Amino acid sequence: MSDSHLSELAQRLVVGRKRDGRSIYDEKAKHELIMACREPGASLAKVARACGVNANQLASWVRQYERSVAQNTPLSGEVVEAQASDFVPVRIEPTEPAAAEPVVNLQARLPNGVVLDLRGCDLGQACSVIEALGRVRCSASTKG
Rank of each mutant, 00 (worst) to 15 (best):
H5G: 11
E8P: 01
R12W: 08
R12S: 09
L13W: 07
L13D: 04
V14E: 07
V14W: 02
V15N: 09
V15A: 06
V15G: 08
G16F: 04
R17H: 11
R17D: 03
K18P: 02
K18L: 06
G21D: 03
S23R: 03
Y25G: 03
D26S: 07
E27G: 04
E27S: 12
E27C: 03
K28N: 03
A29K: 04
A29C: 04
E32K: 08
L33N: 05
I34V: 06
C37R: 00
R38K: 11
R38Q: 07
E39G: 01
P40H: 04
G41Q: 05
V47R: 00
A50W: 05
A50E: 05
C51T: 03
G52P: 05
N54F: 00
N54A: 07
Q57W: 05
A59E: 06
S60H: 13
S60I: 00
S60L: 09
R63G: 08
Y65K: 00
R67Y: 06
S68H: 10
N72Q: 14
N72K: 11
P74I: 10
S76Y: 08
E78H: 13
V80D: 06
V80I: 15
E81L: 13
E81D: 14
E81H: 07
A82G: 15
A84H: 05
S85N: 15
D86F: 03
R91N: 15
R91H: 09
R91M: 05
R91W: 10
E93W: 14
P94L: 15
E96W: 15
P97N: 07
A99I: 12
A99C: 11
A99N: 04
V104A: 07
N105C: 08
Q107E: 12
Q107N: 12
R109P: 06
R109C: 10
N112K: 14
G113H: 04
G113N: 02
G113V: 04
V114P: 07
V115E: 15
V115H: 07
L116Q: 11
L118A: 13
R119E: 04
C121Y: 06
D122Y: 10
L123D: 13
V129R: 04
R135E: 09
R135S: 05
R137G: 09
C138I: 13
S141P: 03
